[in-house]
Nucleic acid binder design. Structure first.
Length: 323
DNA sequence: ATGGTTTTTACTGCGTC
DNA sequence: GACGCGGTAAAAACCAT
């Protein structure tokens, strides 16, 4: 199912290498990839491996020669260089820790207190701010992925609630926003009874499946979310409609799953597989034949699994019909 | 890490259109 | 001959320990 598309093929290596530093269009000394100029930071970086070739060609110091105040306004660009390592690119002001004034004199105790209060508030605003940004980005991602998967609004709602909680409980440090956002959505979809498989989630996320699974487990544990194993029946409507089956077929698929559940036939088996098999079996029973490979396509389950499961399902069903 | 279980992959044979 | 289906063996993935 999740076929790994290999992007690193030989073609990259052969061509466009060994060009001497003639002008601006160079190739990366490390990997041979194309170089791109990042105008914001004045860096020349390799688009492939991220190696920084030239740094800071722009002078960020002040333009000293200004002869009147108007010119000074124009030319003055004093300030620290920006950085992407801080959420605000380092543009915000911080209050120093020393209790000294601008001339290095010590402050009176009264003023010291005042400064302390200011520091506290400054810190509060700064972190609140960064959380806001964080949240904004995450919510955007959740929205994007949710619509890509055709998940309803209430799922997005719960997903954002989960994310907010994760943020409040300081679960983010050490984890990517994307990863946690994706996990939140995955969890929300399952809670809402409209589950999507990890594979489906992974196709719309910018994060690898492994990481999603890992962060998901972590988030669930830390927030002690209660998520029961997905109910096979919850996959049925989607599969059935993807295959254009009738309501009758859908109904039969459900009943097959119900009787299978009574016999405890489903523990340990993948819910998706059960659902796929039930849908296939139902299509046979209602003479709306779909092929196994069609089902395996929409369900992302191998045909073999469908075969194995649907035999069991039919057996179980017959047993009930007899007894 | 390990072992047991489930799923997938790859291949083969059979019947039908 | 291609297609749908069934079965099998071995590899891979998954899960609890």
């Amino acid at each position: 199912m999740s076929e790994h598309v290999r992007t690193y093929t030989a073609e990259h290596v052969d061509d466009e290498q060994e060009e001497q530093p003639s002008s601006e269009e160079l190739s990366c000394p490390e990997c041979g990839g194309q170089l791109a100029t990042d105008t914001e930071h004045g860096e020349t970086v390799c688009a492939d491996c991220g190696l920084v070739v030239e740094e800071d060609e722009i002078d960020r110091g002040p333009e000293w020669r200004a002869f009147d105040s108007a010119e000074k306004d124009q030319k003055s660009r004093v300030g620290a260089p920006t950085t992407n390592m801080m959420h605000d690119k380092g543009l915000s002001t911080n209050i120093g820790w020393q209790n000294k004034d601008a001339y290095g004199r010590s402050l009176s105790s009264r003023q010291r207190e005042k400064m302390q209060r200011l520091r506290t508030w400054n810190e509060r605003f700064r972190t609140r701010d960064s959380k806001e940004r964080n949240l904004k980005q995450a919510l955007g991602e959740i929205d994007r992925m949710a619509s890509a998967l055709g998940l309803p609004d209430n799922v997005r709602e719960t997903a954002s609630v989960i994310y907010r909680r994760a943020l409040d409980e300081d679960l983010l440090p050490g984890r990517s926003i994307e990863g946690v956002a994706t996990s939140s959505l995955y969890a929300a979809a399952r809670q809402a009874g409209t589950p999507r498989s990890l594979d489906e989630i992974a196709t719309v996320s910018r994060v690898e499946k492994d990481e999603i699974a890992r962060t998901y487990r972590y988030v669930v544990r830390e927030l002690k979310l209660e998520i029961r194993p997905a109910d096979p029946e919850s996959y049925v409507p989607r599969f059935a409609s993807d295959l254009g089956l009738s309501d009758e077929a859908e109904r039969r698929a459900r009943s097959l799953l119900a009787t299978a559940k009574e016999q405890g036939l489903h523990s340990g088996k993948s819910p998706v597989g059960l659902a796929a098999a039930a849908v296939y079996a139902a299509s046979l029973l209602t003479n709306e034949k779909v092929t196994q490979s069609e089902v395996s396509d929409v369900a992302n389950i191998s045909e073999v699994t469908i075969r194995n499961r649907y035999h069991e399902l039919l057996e179980a069903d017959e047993g009930v019909a007899m007894g």
